[in-house]
Amino acid sequence: MKILLVDDEQKFAMMLAKRLALRNIDVDYVYTGEEALQKAQNNRYDVALLDVKMPGIGGIELKGKLKETHPDIKIVFLTGHGSKKDFEAGISEGAEYLSKPLQIEELLELLQRLKP
């Protein structure tokens, strides 16, 4: 399973990527939607973990762009807001949704469920 993690909170992205790597999960992490699209040009990802609110291309717009080139990619939105509105936005966009701070076990369970 290969994961693309996109979050403008740089330390969060780096730390989470390290924790996933320690669990033998192949993960690339970037800090902007633009970088994510570049990565996706040359890589095939099974799951994208996307922060919702980012400068430039936000998570919801990024999901649409990733789906154009990777129709099978599974999307998990990560957000610091955790409001009902965010949750509904995530579901209506046909994606999963996790609220920050994350519980690593919850994320691992979700990834297991999304495994192709």
Binding site: E9, K11, F12, M15, L16, K18, R19, L22, K53, G80, H81, G82, K100, P101, L102, I104
Partner: peptide, 16 residues
């Protein structure tokens, strides 16, 4: 939102 982001970093860093 900012405080949640800070806590998220602390949570992942302490988790690591």
């Amino acid at each position: 939102h900012e405080l949640k982001n800070i806590l998220a970093v602390i949570s992942e860093t302490s988790g690591l």
